[in-house]
Design a protein around this nucleic acid. Sequence first.
DNA 1: GCCATTTATTGGTCTGACAATATCGTTTGA
DNA 2: TCAAACGATATTGTCAGACCAATAAATGGC
Lengths: 246, 246
Amino acid sequence: MPDSPILVKRLVVPKAADVLAEHLRERILAGALAEGSPLPTERELGVHSGLSRASVREALRILESEGLIQTRPGRNGGASVRQPTADSIARSVGLFVRGRRIRLKSLLETREAIEPAVARLAALHRTDQDVAALKSAQARLKAAQADRAAYLEANVDWHLAVANASHNEPLIGFMTAISTVIQSATENPQLDSDEVRGQTIAAHERIQAAILAGDSAGAERRMARHVRAYGDQMRDLASGDSELTG
Amino acid sequence: MPDSPILVKRLVVPKAADVLAEHLRERILAGALAEGSPLPTERELGVHSGLSRASVREALRILESEGLIQTRPGRNGGASVRQPTADSIARSVGLFVRGRRIRLKSLLETREAIEPAVARLAALHRTDQDVAALKSAQARLKAAQADRAAYLEANVDWHLAVANASHNEPLIGFMTAISTVIQSATENPQLDSDEVRGQTIAAHERIQAAILAGDSAGAERRMARHVRAYGDQMRDLASGDSELTG
DNA sequence: GCCATTTATTGGTCTGACAATATCGTTTGA
DNA sequence: TCAAACGATATTGTCAGACCAATAAATGGC
């Protein structure tokens, strides 16, 4: 048989687990499987797909790490469908930030780029529920001035309440991601003196008032000022160079 | 033995694969394993960890789907370390968008919220290389007006070139994510008539000039106008309701 | 020295088994 | 009658071992 110079291009051989994962992923994302509905058992999947249980399990691990399924052991256990949440984005951004050694400086810049627009949308789209969540977080912030951990948590909650009030799901995901990471970076106790806390609470009040009033321009401007001021203080103290430790 | 009312809380039993994945993940993210460096073979990992090869493989599948390793078959194959990229974020955002049925309307809103700030940072931080990439994409955009696929690709490339010029990695990740998704949603041929294409090219020219000149305020303003105008056109045509099909 | 062939190493897959866990059904006792 | 205890059962979790497939390294002939 005379051999032609090139018969086929470099061909990829997909792994069995990847093929099955891809198949199930499409079915889940297409909505063919409703949230919470159970997948067949591992053995059934194996029989139907013609793969071994080991390969089926590898496929399920992939989908699980993508946040598309959840598995429970025991009778009536098995994999059930989950739709991805903002937390899935936050997790992947978290890996990105740690793996690439993103500087705190960059994250503050990211927040300064995004959050004013988020506040603007929050002023336009907030509901009564959103307002209640904002007020609750702000109240906890005020109450927790003594307790460092509770303070930081309430602070993140307030910022996420603003994000939620925007009713823009991708933005909620992005803000969840960077707020969580920035907060975990704020381990330096210098970074929240009583003075800073007072300023933060006052700034929140002003922003919140604008959101309540539906004043989108005001909310955007005040949020821009708030996150810029906060960033400036961190940049002064952390000398801009600090890296987020693993 | 007298039984106290509660001895232990509901305790979670971590899976072997999760524990191993967690361990390796920490080592990778902490930088103990440099990019490209090989992990031990599956069999070695099994011996050292005391787990079976099946469990080791499940752990590796998890890390692989997180973008932290890559595996190759054959002699001298095996898993090697990868640091996550913007694409990892894009993938997880893609799942989020499809799974949660995010409307095109929301994605346009997200872009309108983020990209002006990205353009502002690009004007502040662009390098000569960034400028060259911008010009190249814009040239391809002009040249490809006849070829629909090439046009859309060049368009995304230009927007990503702007994002890259910001030199803010999280923003690059976010923009990669939403640009890709929005482009794939732009299947409706109505959405890029010759007129729209002309307007797009002209807008890019203006934005690019501002970025070149280091005019951050101008770049931000012009980008805001561009993405808003583009969004308005899509909203008109798509009647705001369209969902990104799986 | 170069090229074809063989060999070794490594991931990819399968099979079958047993352990751990959670639910269901039944029995038993008050 | 009801509820608590207990055993049966379904399902994931884990393991051990084998063989296949792909790839790179070692070998040998010219």
